[in-house]
Amino acid sequence: MGRYVVRRLLQMIPVFVGTTLLIFLMAYTLPGDPVRAMFGDRGADPATLAHIRHDLGLDQPLIKQYWDYLTGMVLHGDFGTQIQSGRPVTDVLSDAFPVSMRLALIAFGIELVLGLALGIVSGLKAGKLRDNVVLLLTLLLISVPVFVLGFLFKWLFANQLGWVTPNVQDSMSVSELFLPATVLAALSLAYVARLTRTSIAENLRADYMRTAVAKGLPRRRVVGVHLMRNSLIPVVTFLGYDIGSLMAGAVVTEGMFNVKGVGYYLFDAIQRQEGTTVVGLVTVMVLIYLAASLIVDLLYAVLDPRIRYA
């Protein structure tokens, strides 16, 4: 186990360096001159431009700039500054992260309960009417983009039915987060349902199922214990990796419902065209995503011995 953990942590190093380098290159080497853009259409004299470039370190060689960015991040926890408020990005994050975490957990709960329920209902009766209904429903959930679903729900539940307020007032209130969490969960819910369905439908034909039935075990035990334990392995894998992407992928949902999480501040920075804030936040979100998948991998190694000896 110890060797597996060490190996997995060592593997993270090139991925960490690679992803940060990629973000850095995407953000700072593409055409477009942020310094010139500060002056708008009027332009500025070249000496001023050179001076600002020097102050910001933009006249350094690219590799030096990347090194500064990386060391600033690792050694000082420096992800840049939110331009609008002048606060460091890490400061903004300490407010925003608990909100995103809460939203992600509620979404995860919805995804888990509804996704598994739909998958089990349709998988046990593969090919029958209710299976086809579930297939069609999940097809729709996969096809409808998140922001379309969000506006549909907002219009229906807030404007037409008046059950909820259109925007979240208090980002920490669980009842207010319920609607955005449902929207956030919709896509993964459909994947969970389909994965469960396929897995159950396949395992229903397995030999051990026939044996269990032939032994005269009650149906409750055959389905609840024999079938579920074997069918849920791929689903649990998917769910594990999905936690990370739920936390990192809520930009649209949080922006749309005014939930003040990490994604909201990213959405806000984009709307204000604050490039450096965007890069700082994206870097943090990618790190969250990488950390979450690392934790899930380590948990699997605990649960499933086949992985750690592979």
């Binding site: 992803t19 995407m26 930009v251 984009i270 490039g275 965007v278 990618v286």
Partner: peptide
Amino acid sequence: IDIFLGIPFLLGAMVVMQAFT
């Protein structure tokens, strides 16, 4: 491939696109 997979698709696209006006 691992490195690219470490960056969620939409987040990465947002970083690239914000460089263009």
